[in-house]
Nucleic acid binder design. Structure first.
Lengths: 295, 295
DNA sequence: ATAATAGTGTCTTTCAGACAGTATAGT
DNA sequence: ACTATACTGTCTGAAAGACACTATTAT
């Protein structure tokens, strides 16, 4: 047998032999921002927002999509995600993590497109969130995503659990929404999760699914990691920090318990936030010495 | 915020203009199997195994790689993963989940290859695990992956946490190993995780990294989900079930506490496992009515 | 004074960890 | 009788949840 060396093999390798899909990176960029508050004494409420781009061309012309684009041949997936983030927000060196890769055959009507999604968290004070507000193609949308129906049926060899979520995205002039169905099918040994968009109003592609998944990831990770700091400015009050948790988890937390839980993650400064019409609160900063639990 | 011009948009929509990467699916297939035990009275020990394929062609000829292959244009990523699993093990309808997508530019010497990895769990009694044992190209390897060095240094605006893991894969005649470096860099607001293979003996591509990540995912998910059942036969004793947890988590668990923890997940049968040289133990089966915690 | 938030103390409940004890087959 | 595993009861301490209480500013 005439063996060839690895070097020879690589030299003769024909890359054009197989048809290949396109690969894109889509970014779920979250921020938390203060809402306007009329009463000078009351603290402003916080809202979770996601950045969307209005599509200027077909397909889904006029619909809103996640920022993203094709992965170049000379950049890694992470680099492509970083580049997209920089292009859309002009921000670098920010928290970013890969979420999930979407690979359904017909998820893009143009051609076969596989999309690797990333989540990014940014502190809204870092740049003017209102910049892309009107008549522009980039806009921040208030995010709310709620479970509104849940059903579990026991089959003879397992169960079927169905969850319906309503995703609502509120922009300046438009309100987008989608219904997402999550099905968990346990059949004998086979446990499978399926996520699909049942209804999508104003949201391009399967991006409602990606936003939903990003929020799910954010909600679970905020409980046991320090990623929430990526949404905070350098110095912040503990109430502000708690509000960020509350808006993401969509619950009210008890102050004393919250403070006990995150006490090791923060360091007290000697500065205060005053002029608020009530007792000033101490400013804190991130404690880099905080130990994550070995998992 | 930097706006994207319409020209840029249109440019990116012309997909045929761009060179495209290849996309593969790589499967981390785990099983747990009994080791031989000489003493008729003692229970056999359990070991965690992963399926690897000996490469018959360049690149990495003769090295061991995860089963996998190119994604066809007419199949989704999930379908490709299912097909690969069926081709390698002849098993269908088994637990499978997407892990992570690897997209470094030079991770494959042939051409640009982006790999979407999946983890699959199978019950070893479902088929003859020893089938691919010798002189064949598919083989099961005992898995062990241990943290052997950990270092945390505080910088002026964050910290750097370095963890070194040793992955050891024991096959019939060969022992493969790799050193994996996980670096967590917190710099101001930017928290980034980097995983890289420092050393790889006998393992092709970056597959040591994928196995390591799969094991990490398995370890965290076994704690709060019911995926462990995918590794069990229809009926099993609670000690067998505990052994599966112990071999995956690489710790010893206290019997009374383990039973308390998983008590709601199982249903007692009226059968016993006897002839073991000691008191027979009751057989249990999976409780499909077990509620996962809403997260 | 009042409205509104800042911040602390402590009781209770829940859950994980540790350990001791009893039970029962097979040779 | 002995070995090895099967199975249960309960003490302890840590963490999560609930709630009451005091403190302090701007108007």
């Amino acid at each position: 047998m005439n063996e060839i060396t690895e070097a020879e093999f690589l030299k003769s390798y024909d890359v054009t032999k197989y048809e290949r899909p396109s690969v894109t990176c889509d970014m779920v960029i979250f921020t938390v921002i203060n809402e306007e508050e009329a009463n000078y004494r009351k603290l402003p409420k916080k809202v979770l927002r996601v950045l969307l781009i209005n599509r200027k061309a077909h397909p889904y012309k006029g619909k809103w999509a996640l920022p993203g684009g094709f992965v170049n041949m000379d950049e890694s997936l992470d680099e492509a995600a970083k580049r997209e983030l920089k292009e859309e927000t002009n921000i670098e060196n920010i928290y970013m993590e890969q979420l999930y890769t979407y690979g359904d055959v017909y998820r893009d009507p143009r051609t076969r497109v596989i999309s690797c999604s990333y989540m990014s968290l940014i502190d809204s004070t870092l740049f003017d969130v209102k910049a892309g507000d009107d008549a522009k193609d980039a806009q921040w949308f208030d995010v709310s995503d709620k479970l509104f129906e849940q059903q579990k049926s026991i089959t003879n060899d397992g169960y079927i659990l169905t969850k319906l979520y309503k995703l609502i995205l509120k922009g300046n002039e438009s309100e987008l929404n989608a219904v997402i169905k999550v099905t968990i099918i346990a059949k004998g040994k086979n446990i499978a999760i399926n996520r699909e968009v049942l209804e999508s109003n104003g949201i391009a592609f399967d991006h409602a699914l990606i936003i939903h998944y990003g929020l799910e990831r954010l909600r679970t990770k905020i409980e046991y990691t320090d990623i929430a700091f990526s949404l905070m400015p350098e110095k912040f009050t503990l109430t502000e920090f708690q509000q960020v948790y509350e808006v993401i988890l969509d619950t009210e937390l008890l102050k004393a318990n919250f403070r006990r839980k995150i006490s090791e993650m923060v360091i007290e400064t000697n500065q205060y936030k005053a002029d608020a019409g009530h007792r000033p609160s101490k400013l804190y900063r991130f404690n880099p010495n905080w130990e994550e639990i070995e998992r």
